[in-house]
Amino acid sequence: MWNSFSTAGPVSVTAEITTFTGGGGDEIHAYVARPKTDEPLPGIVLLHHMPGWDEFYQEFAERLARHGYEVIAPDLYCRFGHGTPDDVFAKVRSEGGVLDDSVVADGAAALAWLKSRPNHNGKVGTLGTCSGGRHAVLVASLVPGFDAVIDLWGGGVVAAPEDATPSRPVAPIEYTEQLNTPLLGLFGNEDQSPTAEQVDVHEQALQAAGKDYEFHRYDGAGHGFTYYHTGLYRQEQSMDAWEKIFAFFAAKLQS
């Protein structure tokens, strides 16, 4: 649980910007946060949202690290050049978005990086918000080796074929049969993408395929309801979501 550490011995965390070998052998940036401990640690591949590899995601990584995970958040936009996060987002937008194949390759590389760590416990999860939620489902479906995946309001998991783009040619729901990783999904019922109806469609596909999943839907919340830096923030729903994130990862990665 959040804010439940003992003041007698709180866990310190370290965080740094580093580079690692991403998809295609490219050296790309990553934000890495971890608890200061010699104990074996589970890992998390944190996939950033559409606005980019930004300060929110650095703080997101630190929060997860504080709860006992080694977290790597690769800069999925690293190959587009560098500038402020919103300048980079503009460049990515102007080029039609990051390629799904690129994200899957970087996700696989980040998984391998975590598994190579000396104090790794053998378990790795992945999660993301917004486009990162969609990417988390995609990566967990296509890359073997993940033990848990969390989709936080990923828009486009369910999409019509006519909505396919060169960067997003296949909707992740099409890979449901291949998803062999327990999935937690958290959604706001007022979201426009994914809509409640799209979440229903995804849930029906998971049920039909007999997949291990858990969905929670919040009234009074839309897209991005844990984004405390925006007007989308919903305190009650956000704190409940955090408890579900911690509980799910603890059950799947720390046992």
Partner: peptide
């Protein structure tokens, strides 16, 4: 939450030329 996003850029100069 959403807006019309309009960018005038010159990426020959850099991502900050915007």
């Amino acid at each position: 939450e959403h807006a019309l996003l309009i960018d005038f850029t010159n990426y020959d100069i850099g991502l900050g030329a915007r």
